[in-house]
Write a protein that binds this DNA or RNA. Sequence first.
RNA 1: GCCGGGGUGAUGAAAUGGCAAACAUGACGGACUUAAAAUCCGUUGACCGUAAGGUUUUGAGGGUUCAAGUCCCUCCCCCGGCACCA
Length: 805
Amino acid sequence: MPNEYFFKEVESKWQEYWQEKKIFQAEVQKNKPKYYLLEMFPYPSGRIHMGHVRNYTIGDVAARFKMMQGYNVLHPAGFDAFGQPAENAAIKNKVDPKEWTLKCIDWMRHELKKMGYSYDWGREVSTCLPDYYKWNQWIFLKMYEKGLVYKKASLVNWCPDCQTTLANEEVIDGKCWRCKKEVEQKDLEQWFIKITAYKERLLEDLSKLSEWPQRVRSMQENWLGKSEGVEIYFRLKESNEAIPVFTTRIDTIFGATYIVLAPEHPLVKKIIKGKFVEKEILAFIDKVSKESKVVRAASDVKKEGLFTGSYAVNPVNNETIPIWIADYVLMEYGTGAIMAVPTHDQRDFLFAKEHGLPMRIVIQRTEDRGQRAEDLIEAYDGDGVQANSAQFDGLQNQEAKKKIAEWMEEKEIGKCVVNWRLRDWLISRQRYWGTPIPMIYCDKCGVVPVPEKDLPVKLPDKIEISGKGGSPLSFVKDFVDVRCPHCQEKARRETDTMATFFDSSWYFLRFCSPKDESVPFKKEEAGYWMPVDQYIGGIEHAVLHLLYSRFFTKFLKDIGWVGIEEPFTRLLTQGMVLKDGEVMSKSRGNIVDPDTIIKKYGADTLRLYILFAAPPETEMEWSERGLDGAYKFLNRVFRLLDHLGKSSEPAPEVVKKTHLVIKEVSSGIASFKLNTSISTIMELVNVIYQHLDTDIREAVEVVVRLLSPFVPHMAEEMWQRLGHSGSILEAQWPVFKEEFLIEDIVSVVVQINGKLRGKFEVPVDIAEDKLKELILSDPKIKSWIEGKPIKKLIVIPHKLVNIVI
RNA sequence: GCCGGGGUGAUGAAAUGGCAAACAUGACGGACUUAAAAUCCGUUGACCGUAAGGUUUUGAGGGUUCAAGUCCCUCCCCCGGCACCA
């Protein structure tokens, strides 16, 4: 009876087995080392795509590997179930978002199960259910208690397509991250979370994340955007009013020949009042305000501006300099005003040339001290020696930076400040399908938080959603009308919902006690499982989700709910799956549906292929051919079962290779070199095939166990057919024995002047003299040397000899 | 501009400073078969050569080293983040 690999039967058989035996159910076990493995949970669109398959397969290999190594593994799954797609589908198809979402979740769970992932389904959470989002509201109120939540009217990002506001992090290149529509600015009153209160810690602790990709860390660092400098108090000549100006180049302060205000700067309207330039300037301000951020930032050539007619006094030398306004100065960065040093800042240089403004060199190049301002063809922003800088002349500019700042602080004409790019997190969304913000407006008491005992504020079911704008909840009378928790008078509920990134900022904690109704998570359980040892997900969340989750963890630590500062110890960002060099998407029509592949080849083949085609971190190109290769390989492995028991003696080559492969694969999986781990197993299989007339059972058992994290169904089946009972997950991960790795014959490469000229098989313990003698007496080597004197002879034991002639 | 990551066969890709191209795909050849598929085995960077063998090759150019895909310098190109950021 030949052993044939019928993947359909095999895969469903073992999926049922795992489910029945509750193999993946995780419990706190203090006597075992824990391992918390998490992949970014999916939005339940209904179907899994290849990106999910790649992400979750990488995770599954690690989870199963750790299980077999004896770790107590937590590997949960859930759904990031609030969000706009459900609401949009509801509007389009006239269905209830909840029903739609729950149906999608069912589908998706079903598809994930068909992939054979080792999830503890008993811990499944969906963020759209009240038992989850209640705790969003709870955390929100805790933040409110700590003064980290506030409502403020300001210019905010507005997506006209999604009909809602957006956080800064959700605006990519001036466009909505979700629908790619150009984002507008709107003046609205919105809820913000003071993530800026944590900026210093968020930056500092990046250095603790040594096992995160450098790329992600530097993206977060860029986003936080810390910049240290000095705020200088220029004075308005006419009234002595202070004009604060921010600079990172205080060493150039003596070279400031004018100052520039942003067109929106509040001082502008004041100083032009009644002046002859007033009309012209107001027109300019109007023109600039109509330009979108993108347009204004894109024009890096023209620098438009106007003289205001007023003057400022430079506090370091009491020099009177003109005040200009220009579109290249932004109100939202620094103080909205700059000192212009044309000689040492390229933008100022271009502006000064354009408008005939004076320049003065204050930093001299070390190699050319005689430079004159009028000869410059561009600004010099490098280091040098101070000039025209009063008592600081002659100092190195880096040294002068410190000295000038100190001196200014002493004289109280400036102070050292730190500027950040990070802004507070806008979390109000004018959408229905999200967590209601637990706030009440009372005419008498003002803004009143919902008391904890009244949580959750439930999202009303089956409401009318027009999609025509305005928060849908504001039209639901039963929801809006409420009694004030303070005075019991009639009051109104907040009708905006929370950004869904709020939901996903702490779900990894909920997984620790997913069913608990009295707390968001049990402290002891989170204490045991957290932090997540390995997190896996897409690079698109490098700032968004990963920054918010870090912030939540720090906040929860501060209020005593967790003991850790950082939620994710190791992070792997997997690459995208491409088809013909492009991302798979509906609009491109190049989607390969995992379900089709499972039907044709089985989940194991898909899993193996997607891991073998490229290293986890890099982009991979989808190829049907590669899939065939994976399928062939699995069949080849399965057929090994037909060759058992042919002899009672294993071949030494096979034994040696087996132990070497165990060693390499074990360290390979641990460091996510999954593609090469697979190829290493392939090498072993190839060696076994060279020795089918020997006893291969031992080697096959190793192959099956090494393969089991990659292709769990087939491995279980083979393990059983090899005569074992129970799951292969209960079998021990193979351990290599050092003694089998010891070689008695090694191959030594001989180079002459670094070029390969020969190979010698020699005993491993050959003496160096003997080896030299052997090599130098070889006729071929002799002919290469041919009387030329040997200058040097380098011997790398067991490896290589290089003869220099 | 600043920060980060890359550039290796026909293709996906391997290489703790020590034999470049493992493994796989494709192509070619052999075995099995009436035949095909499947399977098993072999060849396959380029150039020169009937062959033995030689020359050459990791974006370009320098350097360090007995030895460089790997380390250093200069430059080119690609991808990503930040950016009229003062």
